[in-house]
Simulated assay, not measured.
Amino acid sequence: MVSLNTTQLEGLIGMLFVLGILALLVLPSVFGIVRDRRIDRQLREAEQGPANERGPSENQKSSSRSTVPSTATWYAEGRRSKKLVSS
């Protein structure tokens, strides 16, 4: 078994500490790169279109609810009309 003296032990602890900080700094970047590559892959797949180009399948049901504009759409329409009137 190898016996470490105090100086070697302090050096080992310091090196592990620096490596730990380096890992904490690098990991967010690695996660971001992985996420960007996943999004790029999804965008490429979406550009190619669905594999089945015949349209919706017969098993797929449409929603029975009526489509009502959201509050954000209503607000934006109101703002646009006010802008047109004031100019």
Rank of each mutant, 00 (worst) to 15 (best):
M1H: 13
M1V: 15
M1C: 14
M1P: 05
M1Y: 11
V2C: 09
V2R: 10
S3K: 13
S3N: 12
S3R: 14
S3E: 12
L4H: 01
T6A: 14
T6W: 05
Q8F: 00
Q8W: 06
L9R: 08
L9T: 06
L9D: 02
E10S: 08
E10C: 04
E10F: 10
E10K: 09
G11M: 06
G11F: 00
G11H: 01
L12T: 07
L12M: 11
I13H: 03
G14I: 01
L16F: 12
L16D: 07
L16R: 11
L16P: 00
F17A: 05
F17G: 03
V18Q: 00
V18H: 01
L19Q: 06
L19P: 01
L19G: 03
L19K: 00
L19R: 06
G20E: 00
G20R: 05
G20S: 08
I21C: 03
I21D: 01
I21W: 02
I21H: 01
I21G: 01
L22K: 02
L22D: 03
L22G: 00
L22I: 06
A23K: 05
A23H: 05
A23T: 07
A23S: 11
L25M: 12
L25A: 09
V26E: 01
V26S: 03
V26T: 05
P28V: 02
P28C: 02
P28A: 03
P28Q: 01
S29I: 15
S29R: 13
S29K: 14
S29H: 13
S29D: 12
S29F: 15
V30S: 06
V30W: 04
F31D: 00
G32E: 10
G32P: 00
I33R: 08
I33E: 07
V34W: 09
V34E: 11
V34Y: 09
V34F: 07
V34K: 10
R35Y: 11
R35M: 08
R35H: 13
R35S: 14
D36S: 14
D36H: 12
D36G: 08
R37S: 15
R37F: 14
R37P: 02
R38H: 11
R38G: 06
I39W: 08
I39M: 11
I39P: 00
D40T: 10
D40H: 09
R41I: 02
R41D: 09
Q42H: 13
Q42F: 11
Q42Y: 13
Q42I: 11
Q42V: 13
Q42W: 13
L43K: 08
R44P: 00
E45M: 14
E45D: 15
E45V: 09
A46W: 03
